[in-house]
């Protein structure tokens, strides 16, 4: 019961915020319609797989969220400069390989966000998630890298931030 209520609340808030962004106004009729639609959308998700219910509601969660967004932005910028350098250099300096990365995040949402972040960081693309192991395509893999080193290099920074506000 508690879990269902929690899931409904997360879906409801998500749908309502998205509705507000779409209509872009705070008229009373928009608010009422949005509340109804968001409640319907939230009710539809009850009993499905709880994808959105992975938040950890602690006082420091917003700080971790900010830290995560900052590091994501930096990583995205570095990824693009890195990729531009590789694409523009005539010799195409790449050493692609598939590596495995272990994660300590428990919830579906946490793993989803981590996989997404890995895709957006320099030179890595998450291919598959199998329980607590992520399969990552690494465009510039140093020869002889083991799992621990790959985990540290690829996911270490994000995981530290994500653990603050996701399970």
């Amino acid at each position: 019961m508690y879990q269902q209520l929690q899931q409904f609340t997360f879906s409801f808030v998500f749908a309502f915020v998205f509705w507000l962004l779409l209509v872009g106004s705070l008229d009373r009729q928009e608010l009422v319609a949005g509340l109804l639609v968001a409640a319907a959308a939230g009710a539809l998700t009850i009993g499905r797989r709880p994808v959105l219910a992975g938040f950890r509601l602690t006082p420091t969660a917003p700080l971790s969220l900010l830290g995560y967004l900052g590091s994501l932005l930096v990583a995205l910028l570095r990824a693009n400069i890195d990729m531009a350098r590789r694409v523009l250099s005539p010799s195409l300096p790449i050493r692609p390989a598939l590596v495995q990365v272990k994660t300590s995040l428990r919830s579906d949402l946490g793993r989803l966000v981590l996989a997404n972040s890995i895709t957006l960081t320099p030179g890595t693309l998450s291919v598959d998630v199998d329980d607590d192991t992520l399969l990552v395509h690494w465009i510039d893999c140093p020869p002889g890298t083991d799992m621990a080193a790959a985990t540290q290099t690829i996911a270490g920074d994000f995981e530290r931030h994500l653990r603050g506000f996701l399970q």
């Binding site: 995205l76 910028l77 990824a79 693009n80 990729m83 531009a84 590789r86 694409v87 523009l88 195409l92 790449i94 692609p96 895709t119 957006l120 030179g123 890595t124 693309l125 291919v127 395509h137 465009i139």
Partner: peptide, 28 residues
């Protein structure tokens, strides 16, 4: 950056590298 991403999609040797170039550059 959109242009560089598309250039990467053309230049990279296999499909995974093309996805990498395409996704990152075009997203930013």
């Amino acid at each position: 950056f959109c242009f560089l991403g598309a250039l990467g999609v053309v230049r990279m040797p296999d499909v995974y590298n093309r996805i990498q170039a395409g996704t990152k550059a075009v997203t930013l």
